[in-house]
Design a protein around this nucleic acid. Structure first.
Lengths: 218, 218
DNA sequence: TGTATTGTGTGATGTAAATCACCTAAGTCC
DNA sequence: GGACTTAGGTGATTTACATCACACAATACA
């Protein structure tokens, strides 16, 4: 990969020295959807920057119950990898490749140095913290203040936007896992949405009405 | 206040130039317990560093329901003030003075500059993000995975440690607010703890057994 | 000292969600 | 085609918690 190509993925990085450093020190990885990138307890040895595709970040409790936190999209990195790296602590989260992904892994050691050396890197890190913090608050609001039906609807919208499609190819069980509930609950709530004609259900697929988002916001 | 005194509050800052800059640009405030420092929607015009006392940070939803996030202790600052400041967005949280507090407010403008100028300031900000992120995860775990009885017990432990006392001077209503539930629920759960002889209840006061923390961890 | 206010105790009832139990339908594999 | 696996549907029951209703005690204060 050359600088021009990298720049097209990461338009915020224009400093040629930084771009070259990323290419020199970073390791490019191609990963297929479904691949588990990181699990709680493992140590993180690099900061992943997504170039193409997306990665799903989940929190897990001791018993293995999951909770969806946010997606890492192109041009983004994970605040938790930044914090865990610096403190050289094991990961607190699970990361799964959502869509086939290309990422570039920056070794922890150079990341520390770059925050001093490159203004754009420092801003990148700072922006990452900011946006992830916001998303943590959104996740917190959801579990603290919202009922499951609303959480499910928002989940559908998020996933729709993520995949830029109005059908979701997933199982009720997987949705249940990500929302930290049980399959039956999701099946029943989805059935309710189908009765309202907001969605249609098939095996491994949910078809969503084009105006779904407007419908739920009322 | 002179440099030596400031340094005694903030032992991580040793750079004389930084200390002097903090004294020159910062504004010292003395606040009494109960004072509401910040409410959702307000704009933050400074980064508060706690020198003495502590500040309680709460998340609120649209209807005014609250949720305790974490305490700001001496030497600490709020990650949310950092993110909100930089993005010049209104506050997403509520901040209440927990114990009589002395803090020094750093104007947003100089904070940005200091992250480049002073290594110790950059590290301070970075450490703040890290520890607050951890605490957000703890808060998230609690609401997502724990029942109210366990959350209440952990709340009591946290508050005990915070005040370095084994009695809490507060009302059931206030605890309920901070845990995002109703007064009756807290009253009943506290009564259960009293029946188990782990605590004793009085008006506006809860006496906690010395070995409370060991008792609950089983 | 009486009255208002605030804090607490507790029964009754409602509700979202969890759990259990079991069934049917759709795909897979030999 | 038959056996097996996986996904989904749905009733029954239980649980945690919310909400309502009201009683009563401690404190403030006029």
């Amino acid at each position: 990969m050359n600088q021009e190509e990298l720049k097209s993925y990461l338009p915020n990085f224009t400093d040629p020295k930084l771009l070259q450093d990323i290419l020199d020190k970073g390791q490019i990885l191609h990963l297929h959807a479904g691949k588990v990138l990181m699990e709680p307890g493992q140590f993180i040895k690099m900061v992943p920057i997504v170039l193409e595709g997306s990665i799903k970040i989940l929190r897990m409790d001791e018993e293995g119950k999951e909770l969806f936190l946010y997606y890492l999209d192109a041009g983004e990195t994970c605040a938790l990898s930044l914090t865990c790296c610096s403190a050289s602590k094991p990961s607190e989260i699970k990361a799964i490749v959502e869509e086939d992904t290309t990422l570039i892994g920056i070794p922890v050691s150079v990341h520390e140095q770059w925050t001093e050396q490159y203004r754009q890197w420092k801003d990148f890190v700072s922006n990452t913290y900011q946006s992830r913090f916001q998303e943590m608050l959104v996740a917190l609001d959801a579990v603290a203040f919202k009922r499951m039906d609303e959480r499910l609807m928002r989940y559908i919208v998020t996933k729709m936007k993520q995949h830029k499609a109005n059908e979701l190819h997933t199982t009720h069980q997987e949705i249940a896992n990500e929302l930290g509930t049980s399959r039956e609950v999701i099946s029943r709530l989805l059935k309710q949405l189908e009765k309202k004609k907001w969605i249609e259900l098939g095996r491994n697929v949910i078809y969503i009405r084009d105006d779904f988002e407007e419908l739920i916001s009322k």
